[in-house]
């Protein structure tokens, strides 16, 4: 297309021009979407919702930084990470939807809070809202991406070919996310007294939500060979965090654990109070115009 003539090319309205953003079919092209024999499909759908909701809700939080980051380069980097996670969410919700008979948007916009399966770490406000700052955001990103990278590395061997393919694509992204967070953790830990103090405070803020990441849920236990048991990731993730914190001159917070609610947490659809507001904002337009096409 000659961009001197950007306008004229608009009139040729071919769908092929508009592929951008629908990417998941291309990312997973050639992947067998049949369900492997013997797999509990309902459990698989629940599992895809868990991993998909983690990515969707964290992406929603990260995109709050857009136009608010400390530097333009960082604005671009955080948007990039949010986009990667949104892409992972879309593939995972689509996979869940193949069992549930709903598309990605029905799952993202029309489920109520109790039906969301994400961990609390993904939903809490770590800034730019009043719940944190850039250091808290980096602390969450470090923990989340270290954990998810370890998880996706193992998920590449899943008996579900779609999950395996999503993981294969995801590990490259998550390795970058973890690297980005680790570099900032070191920079902030080492930089100035203020940045050191804020980074340590950021770690203290997110630490109570770490334990939930490694709790095995009955859905995961039921999907032997398909799902990854998060309890098996603990020592690897601890090792990564230990190495980064020590390079940054930071102290690993004491292992405090946020209490569960009547034994339940995010994976059971029991969330923190901020979740309702997050969903209200995310879902309101979609729900306000039933039957609309976007």
């Amino acid at each position: 297309m000659s961009f001197d003539n950007a306008y004229e090319s608009l009139l040729g309205h071919e769908d092929a021009h508009w592929a951008f953003g629908t990417g998941f079919s291309e990312a997973l092209s050639g992947v067998d979407r049949e369900f492997p024999a013997g797999v509990d499909k309902d459990a698989l759908a629940s599992y895809c919702l868990m991993l998909g909701d983690d990515a969707l809700i964290f992406s929603q939080r990260l995109s709050e930084w857009c136009s608010r980051a400390p530097e333009l380069e960082e604005d671009i980097a955080l948007a990039n990470i949010a986009l990667d996670l949104l892409g992972q969410a879309r593939m995972l919700l689509t996979r869940a939807g193949e069992v549930l008979g709903r598309d990605e948007d029905a799952l993202a916009y029309l489920r109520d809070e109790r039906e969301f399966r994400n961990v609390h770490l993904a939903e809490i406000d770590c800034g730019p809202g009043p719940g944190g700052d850039f250091a808290t955001t980096i602390a969450r990103l470090l923990v989340f991406s270290s954990w998810r990278l370890a998880l996706f590395s193992r998920l590449r061997g899943s008996a579900d070919p779609v999950l395996a393919a999503i993981a294969e694509k995801g590990v490259k992204e998550l390795a970058y996310h973890r690297d980005h967070a680790a570099q900032w953790t070191v920079r902030l830990g080492d930089g100035t007294d203020e940045s050191h103090r804020r980074m340590q405070a950021g770690l203290e803020r997110v630490w109570p939500f770490v334990d939930e990441l490694f709790a095995t849920h009955s859905v995961e236990a039921a999907l032997q060979g398909v799902a990854v048991d998060p309890a098996s990731l603990r020592s690897e993730v601890d090792g990564v965090l230990e190495a980064v914190l020590s390079a940054a001159g930071l102290t690993r917070p004491k292992d405090t654990r946020a209490a569960r609610v009547a034994g339940m947490a995010g994976r059971d659809g029991v969330h923190t109070e901020v979740m309702g507001y997050l969903l209200a904002e995310m879902q309101h337009l979609h729900r306000s115009l039933p039957g609309a096409v976007w």
Partner: peptide, 26 residues
């Protein structure tokens, strides 16, 4: 409108667009 985009595809397109604007500024 990023936080309220009415479909996930539109959210991705919009986020990528706003990110491009930061790149242009740069």
């Amino acid at each position: 409108w990023i936080s309220r985009a009415p479909s996930l595809r539109r959210k991705a397109i919009l986020l990528a667009k706003v990110q491009d604007e930061a790149g242009h500024g740069l």
